[in-house]
Computed example of a mutant assay.
Amino acid sequence: MTTSPRPWKIPESVLVVIHTPALDVLLIRRADAETDFWQSVTGSKDVADEPLVLTAAREVAEETGILCGEGTPLASQLVDWQLRNVYEIYPRWRARYAPGVTHNTEHLFGLRVPERVVPTLDPREHTDWRWLPYREAADACFSPSNAEAILLLPEFAR
């Protein structure tokens, strides 16, 4: 029995800043990084034509257990900020992408939850979580684009 090769990651992803009305932000720590790699929810499309809002809701559910897809009470709180970042993929993760792919397009979303919630993490992906006021959360992020997105939160949380 042969297994099919793992498909290449699609170089289009979402970043979802999960926050409370008080602008506290949920950060999760990556399991596959050597350093304190704190971040918001991120993830790539599963298929090229997957709508970005579905990618965002799926990744939030997979990484935190928070349900915000269509038909859930939080669906209206998942907001596409209509912003995107294009960044160079870290060399250690480029093997996940097709040969020659060096950049990713990341679409920014916000998800407002009514209060700080306890997430359910997949230990293969993330090892810890914490809520921080948004400026402290931005300072704690490993990724500069993630930090910049968090600093935009007051503008988009109105």
Rank of each mutant, 00 (worst) to 15 (best):
L132M: 10
D24Y: 12
D36C: 13
E115Y: 01
P21Y: 00
H103C: 13
P7V: 03
Y97E: 13
L83E: 07
L153T: 01
A48F: 12
E106A: 13
S143Y: 09
L54K: 05
G71I: 10
F142K: 08
S145A: 10
P154L: 15
A147G: 12
A95K: 03
H103P: 05
E106H: 04
V113P: 11
S143R: 11
Q82W: 04
W93D: 14
P119F: 06
Q82N: 13
A56T: 06
T35L: 10
A22Y: 00
S145D: 03
R58P: 04
R130T: 09
D49T: 12
S76I: 10
V117L: 15
H107L: 14
T2M: 15
K45S: 00
Q39P: 00
F37E: 09
T64K: 14
K45F: 05
V41D: 00
D122Y: 04
P154E: 09
I28S: 07
L152W: 14
P11G: 12
N146I: 11
E63Y: 03
G43R: 04
T20W: 12
T42S: 14
D32I: 07
F142W: 14
V101K: 05
F109A: 01
F142S: 02
Y90V: 14
R6F: 09
T105F: 11
E115A: 11
R58E: 01
E34C: 10
R58A: 04
L15V: 13
D49M: 03
R158P: 05
E59G: 06
W8Q: 10
F142R: 10
L78R: 05
L83G: 02
S76G: 08
L121C: 03
T72G: 12
S13F: 02
I10M: 00
L151E: 15
A137T: 07
P11A: 15
L152P: 00
I66A: 02
R58G: 08
W129M: 08
E148A: 15
V118L: 04
E106L: 05
Y87F: 09
H126V: 06
R92Y: 14
P11W: 04
G71P: 03
P114F: 15
W131S: 06
P99H: 07
T64C: 03
W8M: 04
S40N: 15
K9Q: 12
V101M: 06
L111G: 03
H107I: 08
L151I: 09
L111I: 10
W38M: 01
L15N: 12
T72H: 02
A138F: 09
R112K: 08
L26V: 01
T35N: 15
S44N: 14
V101F: 08
S145Q: 12
A75H: 11
E12N: 11
E155G: 13
P51I: 08
